[in-house]
Design a protein around this nucleic acid. Sequence first.
DNA 1: ACCTGAACACCGTTCAAGT
DNA 2: ACCTGAACACCGTTCAAGT
Lengths: 190, 190
Amino acid sequence: MIERDGVEGLSMRKVSAEVGLAPTAVYWHLGGRDELLNAVLDEVLGELPPIRATGRTSRARIGSIVRSARRDFLEGMPVLLLANEVGRGDELSYRTQLALAEELGRAGLDGHEAADVLRALLFVVGGFVMIEEQYRTGEADDFATAGRWADGAAAEVPPALRAAMARPPDADALFAFTLDRLLDAVLPPD
Amino acid sequence: MIERDGVEGLSMRKVSAEVGLAPTAVYWHLGGRDELLNAVLDEVLGELPPIRATGRTSRARIGSIVRSARRDFLEGMPVLLLANEVGRGDELSYRTQLALAEELGRAGLDGHEAADVLRALLFVVGGFVMIEEQYRTGEADDFATAGRWADGAAAEVPPALRAAMARPPDADALFAFTLDRLLDAVLPPD
DNA sequence: ACCTGAACACCGTTCAAGT
DNA sequence: ACCTGAACACCGTTCAAGT
């Protein structure tokens, strides 16, 4: 039901109808909507497959973890939104945190700095995914600022940049670009 | 009302009561909830002050724009959530886009690559802000994975990193770290 | 132990009717 | 042109009552 209509599309009354009970029966079993959502999330979290890095260099392996985290989040958006709604978003990323920590250790990073790198990567993934979801959810005219860039405004801006901003962003390419540059700046050389 | 209770705390019936009319009167004037929200957003967008960069080097100026964008978003979270709800999140960042474009041009970037850099910075800011909001909204036990890091699990991970991950993240420091590294990798030298 | 029905306090929205 | 009242189809939740 959450997969189909999102978290906000799940109602106690619909759930109980699907199960063939009165709405109030669910309250006896679980307590309320919040408890139901948490119970669903518990179930989902228990079934997540382990994360495996691919690649030879540790940079490649770290990149593969981050990329697959993004893919997993994008494919399981309803679950991510559910986790965020009940305030347990970080639990969903725990497996990724572990895999990254292991690989960052192998890359020679440790302590405070390694934690910063790990979290920077995680925040960037999470941020991209949530913004991409905003774009996906919106209508066709969602990319409203494109028109303004195409118009003659912004005289101080170089025209080639203006033209590039008038085209909608390619989220995949933008993510690859950002991740690449960030890894450049954040991993030890070699 | 949105400032106080968030977008989801605004209801047609409360609004109309505040104004001293029947709920249905609002429908005659505006059309519905969606139109009301868009009208509010229009008003807010019209009153935004211009963005001014500070600093001598173009790197400093770009950094200042990005930092003040984050500050503005964090201070005006209800407005950001409103803009996202009605699918106009990018309009809220248009002033920042303009300021960045101008400054990136001055830094010698143009065209496709400049657009990538601009959007990478924007996505990172937006992503951080939205994730920080998730943390702010949650309960005290929200940082649930801290406990797991403190526990003995994750044997493959260096202990100093494990200890660092057991402490909750400092969003300000993490953002400064991420922005600094990203600017290193993304701006032309000098 | 498990379930129901009635009830309360909410929603967004439509529409015929009033002035 | 502007507003109201009644109504419809929803919510989450509580609680006394049933078996």
